[in-house]
Each structure stands twice: as C-alpha cells, then as structure tokens.
Amino acid sequence: MTILLDPTSEQSPTLRPRLERPERLDGLTIGILDIAKARGDVFLKRLGERLGERGIAFKHYAKPTNTRPAPLPLQQQIATEVNLVIEGLSD
C-alpha cells in the first residue's frame, strides 16, 4: 500500500442551494453590477432604464476592475441593499 500526501487544500466544497427565484419583481430592489468590462456600462444603463419604465427599483454598482473579485465592502453593500443582482460577465 502506498501512502500519498494530499496536494490539495483539503476543502470539501459546500454546495449551497440557490435562492428561489421570486415570482414577481414588484417591491424588490434590483442591483445592477458593472464589472468594468468594455461597454458593459452601456448595456447595463439601458437595462436600468427598462426596469425603471416598469416601476422597479434598482441601484447601480461598479467594480473598480474586472481583473479582480469585487472588494468585500462592495459585496457587503450589495448584499444589504438589494434583493437581486444582475451582472454582465463579459464584453
């Protein structure tokens, strides 16, 4: 029998169930996160306008750069201020 040492971080991934999709958007606030990819702002601005036309509350957020994960304060701010988030993943 060979004994090997585990080269991984030995973390068992925790599978977290997704939150259930809300039936309606009425009364909810939607976060719109611009990850700083080229022209993402154009698309997301228009998306905000469309939500506004339907009377749905929304807030815009922006990552300083697409090359790094969102700073923790921004993640926390989004989590406390909105119910749903829309983000554009690439250009």
Partner: peptide, 30 residues
C-alpha cells in the same frame, strides 16, 4: 496533510489522475 492510502491493486498514476491532481501528464507520487 491528509494521508491518502492507495490500494495495492491500484496504480499510483491512475489514482492521482482520478483525484484530479494532474495537469494531464504523469506525476511523481508525493
């Protein structure tokens, strides 16, 4: 680090591949 016992009838290389440790090429068993 966690010790992982590879059975006598198991091939070390195949066991490492199965665990996803390899970049595609054979590895030196650690």
């Amino acid at each position: 680090s966690r010790r992982i016992a590879i059975g006598e009838d198991e091939d070390d290389q195949e066991a490492m591949y199965e665990r996803g440790w390899s970049d595609g090429l054979p590895l030196v068993p650690p």
